[in-house]
């Protein structure tokens, strides 16, 4: 049984550290914040940056979401593999081979390239 109270306490310590930095800056820094246009290398800013943004690698996200679900099974598998023996190794790496086959297919289709 794990105790997560230390995790909560550590979160409090880390947050206190960050807040302390902000507090120190509030006490020490000079003047009110300066509101300036974002840096654009001197060009005038003509629109908000936070508009639609077309990522060129959206196919990778789909592959990733599917492949990383495999870790859900692999972490508990680690605990039993030595006891279950070669049969467990075969099952897991058979499972992985199926997913790698899908990755190879995606590679052949150029899904890892920017489009």
């Amino acid at each position: 049984m794990d105790s997560f109270w230390p995790a909560l306490a550590l979160f409090a310590v880390a947050s206190a550290g960050v807040l302390g930095l902000y507090g120190a800056a509030a006490l020490l820094s000079v003047g009110e914040p300066l509101v300036r246009e974002p840096y654009m290398g001197g060009s005038p800013v003509s629109e908000h940056a936070v508009s639609r943004f077309h990522v060129r690698w959206y196919a990778v996200t789909l592959l990733f979401i599917a492949f990383d679900m495999e870790m859900v099974f692999m972490y508990p598998w680690v605990l039993v593999v030595a006891e279950k023996g070669m049969h467990a190794v075969g099952e897991m790496f058979g499972f992985l081979a199926v997913l790698v086959a899908a990755v190879v297919y995606a590679w052949r289709e150029g899904a890892f390239r920017w489009t």
Partner: peptide, 13 residues
């Protein structure tokens, strides 16, 4: 960085 006057951007979240 602690002492410097900070900048912010209009429309920042």
């Amino acid at each position: 960085l602690l002492l410097r006057r900070r900048r912010t951007v209009p429309g920042a979240d």
